[in-house]
Design a protein around this nucleic acid. Structure first.
Lengths: 357, 357
DNA sequence: ATATTTAACGAAAACGTTTTCGTGTTGACA
DNA sequence: TGTCAACACGAAAACGTTTTCGTTAAATAT
């Protein structure tokens, strides 16, 4: 139960100064071969490791990045975290996570907790409530304090920072095109309310694809789910809504849903109503999660490559952090301008499974 | 782009000493009403917040806890994290996550990265490779350095620390009992290799329940999956193994699987083979994840209450951390003994759905 | 023999706090 | 007028590093 050893203790034990110990451990040639050996041996024996907090204070950087997401029990988000953690670790960074739980207030509190020195920069995805309120002052405030932010997936034009997004629009276009090619005549859309940008973009992609194919969109074929209610725990509501939708539009022969839960639920309802999948009705979802893979029938879906999103986000953030370092070191040669903000688009990919022909 | 303001800057600006500023901000009555007002106003104006790193260094505690888990893209683990984060946040702690990726080496590296001052204690679940190697020196090493550990789910007797586990044994017993009550005569078990303790315990529960019901266990009815291969990406292998298993044992009318993936895959295979669920064959899984809820038919399952596990783990850890504080403060009254290590068992619960009668 | 370089090390500042201990000024009281 | 509290504030240490700048002694050069 001995506390971790410090430079000071080594110094006292070996009867040298703290500076000597520090230098010896970093192989400074200021220190003689003899003392260096002695000190290094002693340090190894006692498993000396420099204290990260002290280093952080001295270097004014923590080598850890803060992740702030609306929800962690969610396949897409956890995939993104895995990607972030991967490159963060490889590049010598730690990762600290906060959950906004889709709440504006918790988002702010979390940011303030982390922004006071605990981290060097943020990677985040905006909470639904914040998107609703359209209040982004906390993001801009932290950026103004010199802390870089990278936003992913749920991003917003009002904040100037690096962004990594899924190509929601083209993903939706591709999906609907595939349904058209598979000879669906009446393609339905199951989507969310418009304030979540990704839902809006996927809806636009749906409309665009129809138009390109010369099909006139029918607003009756669009079902908007109010996802302010916790759908996970209100499955019945969702299913009855869908059932009603299918009954009112018996001619539907293709369904594009903006997430896999809607798609899988719709498949379930359709089968209960007696439709054969994919013969009578074909389905494509969005987000390649475990649901899509293991549903019966398995679901054709638009994969977002969450891990890649995480990796790119982390690289973007760390690149910027280390560019800042270089900048402050060579502040005299101020000819190098700041890197402009990057908006990186990750292409989607359709994964074909049993729910389409 | 102004950096965060510090006590020193406030002091200089207001022409007082740093100590005065610090005291004024904490409402010390050493400072006159006037100056206190002035300083607090100024601080508020410039959004002063004390620097966490400096505080950590001074107080020798970081108020953050480290989570180390094998995998994050996993419903159970992310649920646990959510639970940890919940109480951690409520009690003023942050959460920093590391992923071992089921690797012994990454587990060690991650622990060493975090143990050097970044965190006050660990909450972790052991990686498969570590369990295989049975090498637990890194856990004991960190504990000996005075850093408390709480283990959850995958725990091990060789390490002395607080533990939070699922009642795997009784969960399995309950599940198999239910199948027996539902008049299954030939109950199969789909499980993992024995080195993961939870798989072993659930297997024991299966055997116990059979024995209690006067049924003689038949080793032919036990299918052990080698989960060293990445099952998520080798679905076909899994399914063909199960198919072969069902064909060799056509009398099976009940299946208990130690996780939901096995259960859902088995249901899929069974249906392809022409079995009706739950009429011909009933299924119960373990882990109440999104798969169980949305499978068709939805899966009766043993819920582990992951969030509760996380919450209890966090409470256990923080309790111990703050007990340490109290102890060092009152080191003179050393009559209070250290709290013994606690092994907390979280009861399981059967959630009945469509896969059983 | 004296001046100058080099080797080997220590003192101290700095990062941003909190807290203990001093210190000077004021007012009250004898 | 002299003593003593009370009041209001500042100096400095401490947390654990790294790094700059001495400083001393020996070694080399002149």
């Amino acid at each position: 139960m001995k506390r971790k050893i410090t430079l000071k203790q080594i110094a006292k034990e070996l009867d040298v100064s703290i500076s000597t110990v520090s230098k010896a451990l970093s192989n400074s040639k200021e220190i003689s071969e003899d003392t260096t050996q002695k000190i290094q041996a002693f340090a190894k024996l006692y498993h000396y490791k420099p204290n990260n907090i002290a280093l952080s204070l001295k270097n004014r950087k923590t080598k850890t990045i803060g992740i702030l997401i609306p929800e962690i029990v969610h396949h897409f988000f956890s995939t993104v975290i895995r990607g972030i953690e991967r490159v963060a670790n490889r590049r010598g960074y730690n990762v600290i996570v906060g959950l906004s739980n889709e709440s504006f207030t918790k988002e702010i509190i979390n940011m303030e907790m982390l922004a006071n020195g605990s981290i060097d920069g943020f990677i985040l995805s905006i909470s639904k409530e914040t998107l609703l309120k359209q209040d982004y002052h906390h993001f801009n405030a932290t950026i103004n304090q010199g802390m870089p932010i990278v936003m992913f997936d749920r991003v917003v034009n009002e904040v100037d920072c690096d962004k990594v997004i899924v190509d929601d629009f083209n993903g939706a276009v591709k999906a609907v095109k595939k349904l058209v090619e598979n000879e669906c005549k009446n393609i339905a859309l199951i989507t969310t309310m418009d304030y979540v940008s990704v839902g809006r973009l996927r809806t636009q992609g749906y409309l665009e694809a129809l138009q390109n194919s010369g099909i006139v969109a029918d607003s009756n074929l669009i079902l908007k789910i109010d996802d302010s209610l916790d759908v996970e725990n209100n499955l019945e509501v969702l299913e009855t809504e869908i059932a009603h939708f299918f009954k009112s539009n018996p001619n539907i022969d293709g369904v594009f849903a903006v997430n896999e839960l809607y798609a899988v639920s719709a498949m379930k309802v359709a089968r209960k109503l007696g439709f054969k999948i994919p013969d009578d009705m074909q389905f494509i979802g969005f987000t390649d999660g475990v649901l899509s893979k293991h549903a019966t029938p398995s679901l054709t879906t638009v994969s977002q490559h969450g891990q890649k999103i995480g990796e790119q986000s982390a690289n973007l953030l760390i690149d910027r952090l280390e560019a800042e370092d270089a900048e402050t070191e060579q502040y005299f040669t101020n000819n190098e301008k700041k890197r402009d903000f990057i908006k990186m688009v990750i292409e989607t990919e359709i994964i074909e499974r049993e729910s389409t022909k």
